[in-house]
Amino acid sequence: MNRDTTAETLLEARDLHTWFELRQWGFLRAGHVRAVDGVNFALRRGEAVAFVGESGCGKSSLARTLLGLHRPTRGEVVFEGGHLEALDKRGLKTYRARVGYVQQDPYGALPPFMDVGRILSEPLIIHGVRDRETRQARVRAALEEVRLTPAESYLSKFPHQLSGGQQQRVVIARALVLEPSMIIADEPVSMLDASVRVEILRLLRNIQVERGLTLAFITHDLSTVRHFAERIFVMYGGRIVEQAEVNELLDHPQHPYTQALLAAIPDPDPDNADREHAVPGGEPPSLANPPPGCRFHPRCPEAMAGLCDRDEPPDFEPRPVHLSACWLHR
């Protein structure tokens, strides 16, 4: 491993691109969907970060690329100083034990024909934990860690016998059972009942703090993010348009897109309930055929003709440790 990153950094994305080929009639190449299109960031050991952005902006694609499920078209992922693309089969397998994955749909994420004990043993079996006793002890510990107690009573349950919240706890336990140093959670609570969302987020946060894990979670929900992350990355059209400490970003949003997102947070006042649909107006950009210049400019209230529709904005630093890719900060 070449140590070309600082010791504090756990994972780094450098100029990361993940494009999906578009085919016409099944074989003609018809361009690409640029799901991730030039993303740079570094995650420190033990921090929790949130990726926010509207549907289809490439958040899940980014998560999958970080997990090694998609091969990046360009750029690289560096984990603990090692390049993901350079890993051989064994190296990749080790990497997979170091990074846990929590998916959006807890029911779909669990094989319906396995009981909980089996589901949690699978990663251990795959990673060569031969001894049954050891496996059982680790499975039980993981269940206790996600507060599914007494663990024994859950071991022989099948996913369909659990509530959504319990299912997601099992998914989290599965992500933890290999004792990873990082967890990537792709909208872990968006499919859950509102009553258990905060509970699950708090659980994830507690585990992250206790274990000193790095947690990258993807969310739509800007209203809760303050309590569960230290930094925020705002994504738009396959790119990161703004990043800062959580309070800094939420209190002083710089990018017009972030401002629109914050304005769209549902107001508890029912009179304003339909406002969330009004802002930000317009369609999300097509990732197959992104607009030239700043991708947000067709919807941007402050777009400057001749600049925003022509040149891509670089990252500016309008406030300390607060990056925003918008020509307004020029």
Partner: peptide, 17 residues
């Protein structure tokens, strides 16, 4: 395309498994 297959891949399950 089931998410649990993707999950299995993410925790290191091989093709045969």
């Amino acid at each position: 395309e089931a998410p649990y297959i993707e999950a299995a891949k993410a925790y290191g399950a091989g093709d045969a498994r």
